[in-house]
Each structure stands twice: as structure tokens, then as C-alpha cells.
Design a protein around this nucleic acid. Structure first.
Lengths: 133, 133
DNA sequence: ATAACTGCAAATGATTTGCGATCGG
DNA sequence: CCGATCGCAAATCATTTGCAGTTAT
């Protein structure tokens, strides 16, 4: 009833998708905006927000967080988790050696049907460790 | 330099702590405000925010989320996780039968020193299942 | 042709903050 | 006493939205 029936590939949407896919730092909406703006100076921040929403809805990118009040986006759709550095705030990827046995160890849910779960890590990044943290 | 040296137990702070502890629904700041207001009609929302911050900092309560743009608070400090119903948005507790083997299966961190991790579940609550979801 | 999309600018809404008055230790 | 805290109101800031003009299909 409320989703668009046809999704069009506008040049703005394509640019936003490519910028997000090419970024390795899990950008915020504003960071995507700044990236796209270098090639398309008239694009508006509202358009970036609307397209990131559509692209995430279509499964072409992933929404992360919010971290520190800001939503982030990831062009990498593969199954992986994330760590946030508590000092500098950067987000990095985490590949688990083996999928932890979550399903089997969740019997105490109060009648919920589980759809998904995510593991969020917090830690200190290599750079901040060097700086004495 | 920036944390208060002495923490005073004002009647507002105590009321906020008790309200949060007695609530079983992981209230938002505004919900805590409404609860406390019934006993202390002149309390301000700003005071609630400031005190929830202090109480969480001191480890007397836990900050959750944000879920749907709103931070939530939990008077239960014990080690447990949470499920969010994707339809009605309520948050329930999850007790894992056994602590999943996370530590041993995280070798691929890019040099991070891990401080903590959390598991966030999404699912459909019993009530929403009954309603056909 | 026409519904989806855009840029712009204003609105929203949770949270934060400055300030002068008040209170706890 | 005096610095921590309060109530109030205004400010902040990420995100959303209304609208009139534009574009993809």
C-alpha cells in the first residue's frame, strides 16, 4: 500500500549505491552525501536519505547502528558483524571463525518467533591502543 | 575533569532510580518521566535525562538501544539480552541457556582489544503472532 | 503520459544545554 | 557554605516531509 510499485534507477540513486559500495568505512548518510557531491554537486541531502532507505529496503546495502546517534550504511552485504572503537568511534568488520551456536541456546524466549539476531562488539582499535588507551 | 566529584542522592534521582527498577517494560526517558511525574509533578524532563545518564554511568541501571530512535533503560543489571518485536516494538528479556562461545570464535578482529559484546534479537511477540503476523 | 523522483526548505522529535534558583552533605 | 542539582526554556542535530518542478520508463 505504501511502497513504490516501480523502482527507477536514477543517476542519483546509482551514484549513491556506488559511493556506498566503494566506501570501506561504513559511512553515515552525511558522509555518503559528501562523497556523491564531489561528482554531482546539486544532489540534496534529502535525496541521499531517501535513496539509502530504498537501497537498504531492496537489500542492496545494509543499515548499521545507529552508532552515536547516527545511522551508518554498509555496501558489503555478506554475513559479518562489526566492532566499534569506544575511543575514536570507527567501525570495523568482524568475521567470526565459526557461527556461534545461538539458535540452540535460546530456549527461554517468552514465546517469540525469532527472525534475526546481530552481535555488536565494542573495543579499542589498534591506533587508539598505540596512543596509550 | 568533567565527571561530578560527588554524587548526591536527591529525591528526584532516587525516584527515577526506583521507577526504572520497578518497571518491567524497558522504559524510554519519557516513560520514566511520566511515571515519576505521578508522584513528583514538578520534575522536569531534562532532570530525568540527566539522572538516567548518571545512573547508567554509575552502573545502577543499563542503557539499551536506541530502538526506533529512542533510548531505553533497564533496571535489571543482570547479564541478559533482549528481543524486539518487529510489529509492536516491545522489548522483552532473553536468557540464553548457555553463554555462546563468542570469545573463542573471534580471531579475525583487526587488532582490536574487545571490551564487550551484545546480542540483539528481532522477532514476533506472542500477541502479534496471535493477531496473524 | 504519468508515477516515481528530485531539490529545496521547513518541520519533527529525541536529547542536550545555559541559566539563575535551590538543596544536600 | 558551596558545588551539585533542579526546573524551565531554548538550542541542537539527525532525519523526515511537503511541495512544485523534473525524469525514467
Amino acid at each position: 500500500m505504501d511502497k513504490p510499485l516501480n523502482v527507477r534507477m536514477t543517476k542519483q540513486r546509482l551514484a549513491i549505491l556506488k559511493a556506498t559500495k566503494s566506501s570501506k568505512c561504513h559511512p553515515t548518510a552525511n558522509e555518503v552525501y559528501l562523497m556523491v557531491r564531489t561528482k554531482m554537486p546539486n544532489i540534496s541531502l534529502g535525496t541521499v536519505y531517501r535513496n539509502l532507505e530504498v537501497l537498504a529496503e531492496k537489500g542492496l546495502i545494509r543499515r548499521l547502528g545507529p552508532y552515536d546517534d547516527k545511522m551508518r550504511f554498509d555496501g558489503d552485504i555478506s554475513d559479518h558483524h562489526h566492532v566499534k572503537c569506544v575511543f575514536c568511534g570507527r567501525i570495523d568488520d568482524v568475521e567470526l571463525k565459526e557461527k556461534p551456536e545461538i539458535e540452540g541456546s535460546v530456549p527461554c524466549l517468552p514465546g517469540y518467533k525469532i527472525i534475526s539476531y546481530g552481535i555488536e562488539f565494542e573495543g579499542i582499535c589498534p591506533e587508539c591502543q598505540k596512543k596509550g588507551h
